[in-house]
Design a protein around this nucleic acid. Structure first.
Length: 427
DNA sequence: TCTGGGGTCCTAGGACCC
DNA sequence: TCTGGGGTCCTAGGACCC
């Protein structure tokens, strides 16, 4: 291999949701901060200060640790996805300045393709990226650079763990550096190794990323399928996971929620499922897709001692559709079918499957005028809701009281997406 | 009172067909 | 009375990701 080599950079936003909250609220800087899941359930994002507190782990239900939260004066927020989504777009925009090849991997992460260049230059480039993202958005990042996605991920996690040494950027393109960092990386921290594989590997004495890299291919292939085999190759510097620049066509659209309080009546269940269906259908149209299969499911609270019931029903539609009206009919039919009185329900959801491009729908037979009218109506509704906020217009499903609605009692303002919530700066 | 939501990929095994 | 093999499609379940 020559001295210059092309590489992949992984840019990851540090404690992304917490960082978003901090951008707009200076009093949170250096204060421990957590962000909660939907319904104010469990901890899903923690500031570095919180990571020092052993009781406050990812996924901990907040109600169990209220005293710890008070004792450390932790600031607690409901999640504010409108804010995080908008901040994410700004981060990605900054990244596009650095490479034409950007794969937006998640709300807070992206892979960048980097041209071949000498080592020092990768490191400098990484620092430049970091600085620009911070200047444009106020969001701190950590960056790993190496030959493959999996190695870039190792590098990024390592740099995050030792900020003093790396200042947020680690170039791991050099093979001898790789050997050392892989040696210091526990196997369960490798991307793609979850709890089950981690247990399997440790039982076989494979405890570090380096040992995984040097493991027997056939053994891995047999026990961890091609997925495991690819991880090993990637750790060896062989690219198996390409940069995906154009997002793959979606296969499923889901909308499901836990209820703010228990649902016991069919009326409330119909309203909740109707609501979730509307959200899913709106998403469907945004992607310009139509669905051929609708699934509805309902659950009681799996953590409680009460009698349990869960059920689901799936309908295959004669023709794919993207209108709320048509999809709603099936979803409500589903609710009627699986709802059993006498249970205390905690969650419900809707899945849309067999997704096809919506432009194929124009070929529906018989110039279905009802269908065309319905689609024009949908376009108008989506436009109005986009401009004036979701729920400006919505489908009425015999409204009941809305205690089932998901709780967001500690939500921050919509600083960036709603004018009345914009920050006021005193002169 | 209180325990998230939204995805993808892979494989084994059954059903069905010729 | 004996009795095959190969291909495809679908689904459920497991594993993982953020």
């Amino acid at each position: 291999m020559n001295a210059a080599t092309s590489a992949i950079a992984l840019v990851d936003c540090v404690s992304f949701y917490v960082s978003c909250e901090r951008v707009f609220n200076a009093s949170l800087v250096r204060r421990p901060v957590v962000v909660l899941s939907n319904n104010d359930g469990c901890i899903i994002a923690r500031s570095p200060e919180v990571k020092q507190i052993p009781e406050l782990k990812m996924g901990t239900p907040i109600f169990r640790v209220e005293q710890v939260v008070d004792a450390h004066d932790v600031a607690v927020f409901s999640s504010n996805y409108a804010l995080y989504g908008d901040m994410s777009l700004r981060v990605m925009e900054a990244l596009h300045e650095f490479s034409p090849e950007v794969e937006v991997y998640s709300i807070d992460e992206a892979f960048l393709g980097l041209d071949a260049r000498p080592r020092q230059s990768f490191l400098d480039y990484g620092r430049e990226i970091r600085e620009k993202v911070y200047r444009w958005t106020g969001i701190p990042t950590s960056i790993g650079i190496s030959q493959t996605k999996t190695l870039a991920k190792v590098a990024q996690r390592f740099s995050k763990k030792s900020p003093e040494a790396t200042q947020g950027v680690l170039d791991l393109t050099d093979p001898s550096d790789q050997a050392q960092v892989l040696e210091e990386t526990p196997v369960e921290e490798v991307w793609g190794v979850g709890p089950a594989y981690s247990k399997l590997l440790k039982a076989a004495g494979i405890t570090t990323a380096r040992k995984l890299r040097d493991a027997d291919r056939r053994w891995i292939r047999q026990r961890m399928t091609v997925v495991g085999a690819r991880i090993v190759e990637e750790l060896r510097g062989v690219r198996c996971l390409p940069l995906e620049q154009c997002p793959q066509a979606r296969k499923t659209i889901t909308c499901s929620r836990s209820f703010g309080s228990v649902v016991e009546s069919l009326e409330q269940m119909r309203e909740a499922v109707g609501r979730y269906l509307s959200i899913a259908a709106e998403r469907l149209r945004r992607y310009r897709l139509a669905a051929g299969v609708v699934t509805v499911f309902i659950n009681t609270n799996r953590f409680s001692q009460e009698p349990q019931y869960s059920n689901a029903v799936t309908y295959e539609l004669a023709q794919a559709t993207d209108t709320t009206e048509e999809l709603l009919e099936w979803a409500l039919k589903g609710v009627e079918k699986i709802f059993r009185p006498g249970y205390r329900y905690k969650k419900a959801g809707v899945l849309l499957n067999h997704l096809v491009p919506a432009d194929q729908l124009s070929r529906r037979l018989y110039g279905d005028s009802q269908f065309e009218r319905s689609r024009r109506l949908m376009r108008a509704v989506d436009e109005i809701n986009a401009r004036h906020g979701r729920d400006t217009i919505r489908y009425g499903v015999a409204p009941s009281d809305d205690s089932w609605k998901t709780r967001f009692s500690k939500r921050s303002p919509l600083y960036t997406t709603c004018l009345k919530d914009a920050l006021t700066v005193r002169r």
